[in-house]
Computed example of a mutant assay.
Amino acid sequence: MGRVDVVRATADDWAAMRDIRLEMLADTPLAYLETLATAQARTEPEWRERARQHTLPGSLVLGAVPLAADGTRTGRWVGTMSGYRRPDGVPCLASVYVAPAHRGSDLPRRLLAGVVVWARDEVGADRLLLEVHEHNPRARRFYEREGFVLTGGGTPYRLDPSTRDLEMALELPRP
């Protein structure tokens, strides 16, 4: 596991965004609101449009890109986190994934720090929300270590309404 750069994605990163999305859906299916089969069925134009939509103002996609010894970016993304604004303007953390080889490193915290800066400084928010599946204790423990707390809110999980996504919030104090 070498050095990794955290970058803000652009629409031109559509292939990297596609590859990491397919990897994350295969790794932790219950953490996301679509199935691997649905994602695999998308065409290249659909992936390009998805990337364009996810990188418009008001949204954020961060990618974790491995670096070669000389510092140039190389290889597939090894992590990602996204932020979006709900219709009421509240920023939310979504599409969180770190490849198994990078779990336990500082990469998840670095990605989260980028989303926090976006929510606080670009959106102007004083808190960041997320939803985590009730049967995803590894993710929930990470969020709790980073200061997120359960709000008591949540929604039925779209792919299995007999389970729930639990809402968590992180207060974003001004530096």
Rank of each mutant, 00 (worst) to 15 (best):
A9M: 09
A9H: 11
T10Y: 05
A11K: 03
D12M: 02
W14Q: 05
A15H: 10
A15F: 03
A16M: 12
D19Q: 08
D19M: 01
I20G: 06
I20R: 07
L22S: 05
M24I: 00
A26T: 03
A26W: 06
A26V: 00
D27N: 11
D27A: 15
D27Q: 05
D27M: 04
P29T: 12
L30S: 08
A31R: 04
A31N: 11
A31K: 01
A31D: 04
T35M: 08
T35W: 04
L36P: 06
A37G: 07
A37K: 08
T38V: 10
T38N: 09
A39I: 03
Q40I: 01
R42N: 07
R42W: 15
R42F: 13
T43F: 07
T43V: 09
E44D: 15
P45W: 11
R48N: 07
R48W: 05
E49K: 09
E49T: 09
R50H: 13
R50P: 00
R52M: 05
Q53L: 15
H54T: 04
H54S: 15
T55Q: 09
L56S: 03
P57F: 13
P57I: 12
G58K: 01
S59T: 10
S59V: 00
L60C: 04
V61Y: 09
L62K: 04
G63D: 09
G63T: 02
A64P: 02
P66Y: 01
L67G: 10
A68R: 13
D70I: 01
D70S: 12
G71K: 12
R73C: 09
G75Y: 08
R76F: 02
R76E: 12
W77Q: 13
G79T: 05
M81G: 06
S82Q: 14
G83H: 01
Y84R: 14
R85F: 00
R85N: 05
D88V: 10
G89W: 02
P91N: 06
P91R: 06
L93M: 12
A94D: 15
Y97M: 09
Y97V: 08
Y97R: 02
V98A: 02
A101S: 14
H102L: 14
H102K: 00
H102Q: 13
R103H: 07
G104Q: 11
G104A: 13
S105T: 15
S105L: 08
D106R: 15
P108N: 12
R110T: 06
L111N: 03
L111E: 02
L111F: 07
L111R: 10
L112R: 02
A113R: 11
V115Y: 06
V116C: 13
V116G: 02
V116R: 15
W118S: 10
W118H: 07
W118A: 12
A119W: 04
A119V: 03
A119L: 04
V123M: 13
V123R: 02
V123N: 08
G124A: 04
G124C: 06
G124R: 09
A125D: 10
A125Q: 05
D126L: 10
D126W: 05
